[in-house]
Every structure is written in structure tokens, then in C-alpha cells.
Design a protein around this nucleic acid. Sequence first.
DNA 1: AAATAAAGAACGAACGCTCGTTCATTTCTC
DNA 2: GAGAAATGAACGAGCGTTCGTTCTTTATTT
Lengths: 208, 208
Amino acid sequence: MSDSSTKGDQTRAEILDAAWRLFLEQGYHGTSMRDIARAAGGRAVAGLYNHFATKETIFEALFIERNPYEELFGALERDLEGITAAPEFVHTALQSVLRVMTKHYDFFQLAQIDVREFGGRHISQLLQEVGFPRIVLLVARLQSLPGLRPLEPVVWMRLMACMILGYIITDKVAPQTMFGQFNQDEWASLFANALLYGIASDQGEDER
Amino acid sequence: MSDSSTKGDQTRAEILDAAWRLFLEQGYHGTSMRDIARAAGGRAVAGLYNHFATKETIFEALFIERNPYEELFGALERDLEGITAAPEFVHTALQSVLRVMTKHYDFFQLAQIDVREFGGRHISQLLQEVGFPRIVLLVARLQSLPGLRPLEPVVWMRLMACMILGYIITDKVAPQTMFGQFNQDEWASLFANALLYGIASDQGEDER
DNA sequence: AAATAAAGAACGAACGCTCGTTCATTTCTC
DNA sequence: GAGAAATGAACGAGCGTTCGTTCTTTATTT
């Protein structure tokens, strides 16, 4: 009787822990209810159904109860507070997002599983409920700041999205390739600098 | 007797066509041999085993016989021939890659399935055999051209990778969001310009 | 050119196994 | 002692694959 967690709650958490690990290792269809039961302390399969109605319910519970969006947007909004220049805004935003994404890498792996095996049903619903309004607010704030080329918002929105998604995907293979020599803060700086000022040298400025 | 294709070859192709479509729609584990047999002209399951030893053999055959890497690198090398300025090189390379990737979008979806369900076994082997040497050559050529900031090669390599991977991933959700207003050539230009010259306005140049 | 042998391609049926889920029952917890 | 939690056994369905057999095509021999 540590806190308010009864025996049932504890078992439930154990099941979620096991499912989390197994789904990440073997995917959704690659993980059976028996696998989960075995990994959750060598239980019997039938016992899982005292806590979750179906296998998919377990997957959904992971998304709803263990998503880092509160942390992600909380950190973003806190870090960006009071920033009045667009370059600093972009740099800080990238740094903030990359930090949380690196910390909660597992969750975004789970989101990839959702995309592949459920067509992204759960993750897109979650984003719509909890993420989209706050993204819109941040975008509006950035647009109001000085220091950006008059690009269409969609353009640099997609640029940012490519950077973030590309980062987390290349991060997976980074150790095997030559990508793995910087941490996420260094990458955030490199990305932000490249995004803001480009990789071309200044001498060829008249070109284009 | 149209060409050299016997009856068996034709059936084999029909099986591959059906498997290609079903794997894309339902994933590897979501597609059964009976599904494939049914989709390949309402055949019997057992007949598939006259042409392929196992289910995974079918998946492998798709990768080996239907990958667009020859086209991808052929186009890249052809398009980049004779280019002597780094900015034009980057722009052309992005355009070339995005074109082939958009055209062969299905294959790269299949590659994602491979990553999820086989740990990328087949795609990485394919890349190692057919892609890596040519990538190294192209990178070396770009590094020899004038007009780039003295960035570490790994940095802009990963930047390019992020752009390309990010593009193909955001492209999937583009119709549902606000990303879908440009075609791949326009995006290649936008990406190349942003990558080369940045999105910051010129007035804040002294900063950082 | 006809006859025969060999190989390829297709089939229905079945095998052994695993899946997600349910049930009646027992054990534990409050 | 009531209700929650856990159990072994079983269910029906589906899986990848194999088997024995038939039909068709190709190759070889007369």
C-alpha cells in the first residue's frame, strides 16, 4: 500500500509496461496476448482481460496515458516565452522539440507503429485533440515576429516538419552510419543555422 | 506466345503484382498467402509454392526485382553531369531524387514495411549493394565544388537526408493538411533555396 | 510426324500451430 | 463474505506450409 495504487492498478501498470516494451520490439501484430502475459510477470493470458477488453485497448491505453504531448508543448511554450526575434524563436523551438523527442523516443516509435498498423488512427486523433490548437498558436506567434523572409507559412512549416521527422528517423540509423557524432542540442543548432542562414557561402550571393 | 514469357512466368508476375498491392495495403503480417492467391486471379494457395518457396521469398523478390535504384541513381548522375557550382548541384540533386521518389512512392512504402517488420534487413542490404558506392561518389564530387560553407560533410549529408525523408513522409499526410499545394519540383526548389540561403531575412545578418 | 517420357503448374485437403477471446472455477483482497 | 483478480482449459478461426494427385506443357525418342 505505497500510495493509492491497489493490487489491480499495479497489475494493470505491469501489463502496460510489458506491452509497451513488446510492441516496440516486435510491433503490434508481432506481439501476442500470451507474449504480454508472460512478460508481465508470467501471468495467465486470461487475466489480461480483467483489465483490458481487447488487445487493441491495451495499445490505445498506451497512447492515451503515456503520451508526452503535455511535456512537449509545455516545454515549447516555456522555452519560447518572451522571445521576440524569429531566429532565436526557430532555434529554441527546434532545440526544445528535439530534446523532448529524444527523451521520449519510444513513444514516437510507437506512433510509427500506429501509422503502419492502424493507419495512424490513434496518433492523429491524439494530435487533433491535444496538439493542433497549441501548434496553431505557436505558428501565429512566430509569424508576428520580425526577421524572417516573406516565405509562405506552409513552406517553412513543412521545412520544420521535415527537419524534425527527418531527425528522428535518421537518428535511428545514426549509430550505424556517420550521423551519430552530435547530440540533439548540437543538431538543433546546426539545423537552425542551416535553416536560417543556409549552407551556401556568402561569396556567391548574386547567384540564384 | 507474345515474347519469351511462358505461362509460368506470367503467373509469377501476377503473384508479385498481387503481393505488391496487398503488402502495401495491409502490411506483411496483415497479408496472408490465401489473400495473395485470391488476388492473383483466384488461384489455390498451394500453387504459390510452385513459384516461391516461402512467403518471405515473395517479399524479397519484390525488393530485388522491382526496386527503382537503377533509375534513381541513373537519373541523379545524368542530371548532375557537368554541373560545376555547388548550389546548382544541391538543387538539381534534390529535384532529381524527389522526382524519382514521388514516381516510385510505392516502393519506398514497401521499404518502410521492411524497416518495421524485418528491421530493414532487405532494404539495407539492397542499399549496401547497389546504392552506397554511388552515393559516396556523388558526395565526393559535391565536396570538390566551390560555393559551400565549410560545414562538416556529415552535417549537410544529414540535412539532405532529413529533407528527403521528411518530404516523403509529410507527403503522405499532405492532402489532409496544408502541405499539398506544391508539386515535387516546386518543393525541390523551395527546399534547395532554404537549404542554401536560409529563411532568415538579410537585415539581421550581424546576429549570431 | 507420332509416341513417349519428363518436368512444370495447378488443385483440394489436410497438418500442426498460434491467434484473440471466453468460460467456469478458484484464490485473493478489502 | 462480497467483489475483484487470477487461473487452466477450451473454442473457433486463421495462419504458413506440405501432401498426393491431376492436368498441361515441353523435351526426347522413335
